[in-house]
Every structure is written in structure tokens, then in C-alpha cells.
Design a protein around this nucleic acid. Sequence first.
DNA 1: CAGAATCCCCATTGATACTG
DNA 2: CAGTATCAATGGGGATTCTG
Lengths: 146, 146
Amino acid sequence: MAVQVTRKEPLVTSATTLTARFSDWQETGFDATRCPIRNVLDRLGDRWTTLVLIALAGRPLRFNEIRRTVPDISKRMLTQTLRHLERDGMATRHVFPTKPPSVEYRLSPLGISVLDPLSSLVDWAENRFAEINRARIAFDATAGTR
Amino acid sequence: MAVQVTRKEPLVTSATTLTARFSDWQETGFDATRCPIRNVLDRLGDRWTTLVLIALAGRPLRFNEIRRTVPDISKRMLTQTLRHLERDGMATRHVFPTKPPSVEYRLSPLGISVLDPLSSLVDWAENRFAEINRARIAFDATAGTR
DNA sequence: CAGAATCCCCATTGATACTG
DNA sequence: CAGTATCAATGGGGATTCTG
């Protein structure tokens, strides 16, 4: 069972470690409460979290500043996304008792720490974007014949 | 407009480049066909793609081998996930004309290339998992008072 | 074995209205 | 300004059935 690594030469170095840890998660049945992929990456993979994280990467922003930065997010989803980030310890919320109230959101050290791996993935996405688009066009062109 | 970077000392190096590119995407209104984050990461962020990619990281696998590797994926979703990976040029599909037929899936160079940034994010998730869980418990404990 | 096709559900999201 | 509450809709995903 688990992932059998029969191949002598792994695809890339990261593949070996990924595969090894995959076996561990697999034994838990990918229990969402214990598998980091499910538990953490599912959240980063939702519609808004990544965009809000990047928006806050530059500097702390207030609620409506974030809304203007991510134009098509609704107040409802922004509130929810920020609560999730706050709950996960990725962002902190500071209320200034002005009137009307102003609330500033700021990445915590934990939130800042995710920017680096996130940036790697964004780099990859940008660098490979053209290649992916070409693959899609090629695939769709032969869609009828397959 | 866009993301105003007034801070002199960026949070981390990656934050600066992320913020800069964020402005570019923002000007397109995050058009899904042009914004790499929306277009590429939304796919990586779905329920199964990452798990299937990691499953294939070790070695090429046949359809039902992947199913056994990712226990709770349905045939429907596995087919769909594999088609997406194939369409994006991340995996290739090889049909062996045996009876019954066997079909092998294998990561392409493009698919292999994503393992590295993906691994960075998985590393982060594992290393910070305990910290995130503590934050969640602390947050939930004060949920009633806030 | 490796799918394709169909039906259906519910979780995520959006839109709207209301509030301290 | 920064939310909350409620309702409605969309589509991702599961279960099942059928097939080369």
C-alpha cells in the first residue's frame, strides 16, 4: 500500500520528499484535521484568500481599502476571508475607536511567512502561463477527434 | 491607485515582487484568462489536483492505481482531474491496447516542474501546521467574547 | 479496466437589506 | 466605515448506472 517508490531516480528532489510524506497522510485517510494539504492548502486554494494575502503583503490595509484592492470581492466574502485569516493566525485585526470606526488588517509573522512559498508558486504560474495556454489550445483543438 | 507601497522596508523580499505584479493583474480586473493566480492557482487549489499531482510524483500510475492512492476520490472526479492535468500539459496519457485496457498517466516536464514550488508550500504547511492549530484553538476559545 | 453519462445535493458564493 | 443577517443561485462534487 501507500505510494510505492520503485523508481530509482526520482523525478526531482522534491518529488521524493513529497511522496514519502504523502504515505504518512495516506495512512490517516487524509483526515482533514491532520493532513496539512487538506487542512491548510484547501484554505489557501479558496477563491479569495490568496488575493487578500497578496493585497496585505504591501502594507496593512483597512477593510474598504482591501475591497478597492480586490475589486470584485463582496463585503460578505471579504469579512469571511479575513476572519479565516485571523483565526488561522495569519492576520491581526486592529480597531481604531474613531467615528466612524476604522479597522486595520495586518499580516502576522505567520502570514508573512507564507508569502515566500506562495511567491514561488506565483512565479511558477507566471513563467509557465504561456506554456499552459498553448497546451490548452492544442488539447482543445484535438478534442473532437478523441 | 493599485496597491500603494508606501512602506520603506517591505515585509519580505517576496512581498515586494508580489505586490508589484499584483498591480498588473489588478489592472486587468483579474481577468481569469490573463491573471495567472486566478487561472492557474484556482486549478491547483481544487479538491483533488494537488493530491493527484503528488501521487504521480513518485512514478507513473494507472487509473485505478491512482484511485487506490487517493482513496476517497470518485472515478468521476479522478477522470475530470486527469483531463484537466492533461489539458494543461501537466500529465500525459498512454493507452496500452491490452484487454481489458490499461491506461497509464505520467507527469510531463511541466507537471514535474510544479512539484518544486508545490513542495515549498507543502513544507510551509507542515512546518506551520501546529502553529496554525494553536491559533485556531485560541481564536475559537474567545469567539463568544468577541 | 477505464471510463462516459446522468441525476441530484449541498456548500460556496453573490446580492440585498439592515446596523452600531 | 465596517460590518451582520438573510435569501437566492450556481456549480462542484458524489452516487449510480452503463459500456467498449
